[in-house]
């Protein structure tokens, strides 16, 4: 791994983000819009005293963290799609750049973008709804780490699948996180799900992050149980993601797809 090559990938995607209004919109507009909607919803519930204590914090905190998770996973995949849409893959991979260096650069840029989006969402929640996300920030960091690692594992698998099955399946880049959302207990506790869905929800690191976040907001302290489950599951997903990606990449190279992808 050479740093200058990773820096080149970062430069390429930073320039793209600067020139492409779609990327700026995705980075800031959606997280802010999401918070505005959830904010009004909590205001409405609070007015009629339908809210449990701490519910505003649960909802807005969850909206901010889910926004970060979704943006990171989506932007990883769309960042790679940018290369396909601009037919730049042959240019990139006829240089010494390795796929690992490429992915590292892509991860750094998109993690930064997801953090900017999260910051915008948190500031919106603070300014518009007096919800201060920042005092709990340190307690949230381990759960944010788990969310980021899971987004990364999913992103790597989706990029691998796009390399192998081409842009026919590009919609996965935007839709896959949505598929996980109902089972990730983002806005409601695990106990709200039907019992037969508990094993599925328990197998998702996202569920543990949001359960852990709710425990921290409720004053129950840091949940080692949920953090431990989350990080272990992330490791398991990575154990699948890396060989899947490698297999897809080599299969695409063997089928000559790297030079035909668009």
């Amino acid at each position: 791994m050479k740093l200058h090559r990773i820096a080149a990938v970062i430069l390429r995607h930073t320039c793209e983000a600067r020139h492409n209004l779609n990327r700026i919109t995705e980075m800031v507009y959606w997280p802010v819009q999401n918070i505005v909607v959830w904010g009004f919803f909590t205001v409405y519930l609070a007015r009629d005293n339908h809210l449990r204590p701490g519910a505003i914090s649960f909802l807005l905190g969850a909206a901010i963290l889910w926004g970060m998770f979704y943006a990171f996973q989506r932007d990883l995949a769309t960042g790679f799609l940018e290369e396909l849409w601009s037919r730049n893959l042959v240019n990139l991979f006829s240089t010494p750049l390795s796929i690992l260096e490429y992915l590292t650069g892509l991860i750094i840029v998109n993690l930064l973008k997801a953090m900017i989006g999260m910051l915008a969402a948190a500031l919106t929640a603070w300014v518009c709804y007096a919800y201060d996300f920042f005092p709990k920030f340190v307690e949230f960091i381990p759960f944010m780490l788990n969310l980021a690692l899971f987004a990364l594992a999913i992103g790597v698998i989706i990029i691998g699948l796009i390399i192998r099955y081409t842009t026919r399946i590009q919609t996965l880049a935007w839709s896959f996180a949505g598929l996980l959302m109902p089972f990730s207990c983002v806005f409601y506790p695990l106990s709200s799900l039907p019992r037969y869905l508990h094993p599925l929800a328990w197998a998702l690191p996202t569920t543990h992050s949001f359960e852990g976040m709710r425990q921290a907001i409720a004053g129950g302290g840091f949940s080692m149980l949920h953090f431990g489950w989350g990080i272990t599951l992330d490791a398991v997903y990575f154990m699948f993601a890396i060989p899947i990606f490698h297999k897809m990449f080599e299969s695409a190279r063997s089928r000559g797809l790297l030079v035909k992808l668009e």
Partner: peptide, 21 residues
């Protein structure tokens, strides 16, 4: 083979200059 279309000529070449150090 094409370049990312939104980047300027200079930016595109700079990316490759960095790739080659």
């Amino acid at each position: 083979v094409q370049f990312p279309i939104r980047l300027t000529v200079f930016e595109n070449l700079m990316v490759f200059a960095r790739l080659y150090n």
